[in-house]
Design a protein around this nucleic acid. Sequence first.
DNA 1: GCTCTTTGACCTGGT
DNA 2: GACCAGGTCAAAGAG
Length: 398
Amino acid sequence: MDIKQAERIVVTKPVATRPTRSTFRSFSELLSGAIDDPPHETCSEIAVAAIRPKTVRFNQMASSAPGAALSSQAEFSETLLNFDSKRDVYKLDKRATLVYKPQAKFVSKTTVSLLANMGNFNSSYQEMLPLVETHVPCPNKDIQNLPSQLGKNLQIALHTETDRSIECENIALQNLEEVPNAPHAANGDRPSYDGYNWRKYGQKQVKGSEYPRSYYKCTHPNCPVKKKVERSFDGQIAEIVYKGEHNHSKPQPPNRNSSATHGLGSLSDPSAHETNVPSWDKLLDERNEGSKGRVENRYVEALSALACQDRDLLSSNPVVTGGINTGAVTSDNFCGISADCDEGSNGQDGEPRSKRRKSQNHFNEGVVAGEDIRDPHIAIKTLIEIMKSLKIYKFVSY
DNA sequence: GCTCTTTGACCTGGT
DNA sequence: GACCAGGTCAAAGAG
């Protein structure tokens, strides 16, 4: 399929310099700017958002010393995002400064459109998402499928600033674009969160880039699409550049009715097929009747991802241990929820799988701290409590 | 035995 | 034409 250059949205290549006080804007400003723009320009903004947010870093130390970094980030973040303890709301400080690495990229309009349509959920939750779901190298699936209902629910629970559009979504989407260590699909292809399968064909250390760049091809026959991915050493996406357009639709997930233990089912819970214990994914499906189930799932995933962020902190945290654990959820089995928080946690074979799975099932029941977190309001309240207890006030997207 | 990743070598385009 | 950097190929090894 020919790639029409004219259809690509070209983003001029900025010089990679540290933004100055006057040149960069806070995340909220960027978001509000996107909203204020007229529709046509909003489209461009979406395109930019879809390709720009590869790097929103505060401190490189984050990857080298997770615990310390979290602490320092928390301190830093307190100046950026303040909680209203009375109302459980948070406010973005306009002075907040996020540093992201500018880079020239272009994607097709089709790609932009696809990204933009990957879940048209509202902003409140999106604001939560980058923190919960991109700060930790946890494979969180189907983020793009978040229903708008979730945003509505969260708008009730959180009094955020203005309505945000898809920029934040795209940021989250990009940061979640591909998950390292994701189990292979049955056919050996590596499904990504953009829904396509990719095969790595090269890797190179690019001059001027601190991370190695990996080259991927779409595994679909005759599909010309390629992408470059720069991933930091802790496995988080630093940059993604798409090239070309898919000449096919997204590969269909396997029919779970007939083979619920294969394909994406196993992607979610690689070990699920080994036992009769229903996989997390499957349970989700069972609950996914309408958007409500998905809303619930996102909370559970968000909580699990948060837990993955620093299990030591969680385990020593009175709110978490005293609250969540009363719901039979420990910091460890938090990670079990999202199937494979990271390779490390998965590789912790000190705890028998059955035990982890059992714990996971507790969470599957949607009970945390004695409350039913399937209720979005309760879920977000619980989440905020945990965040507050951990002094996590800011979304840091890598 | 198949498929994927890794990685050094090679190719290509820009200066 | 030389040099350089990015992109791709392909053999070897791993799972």
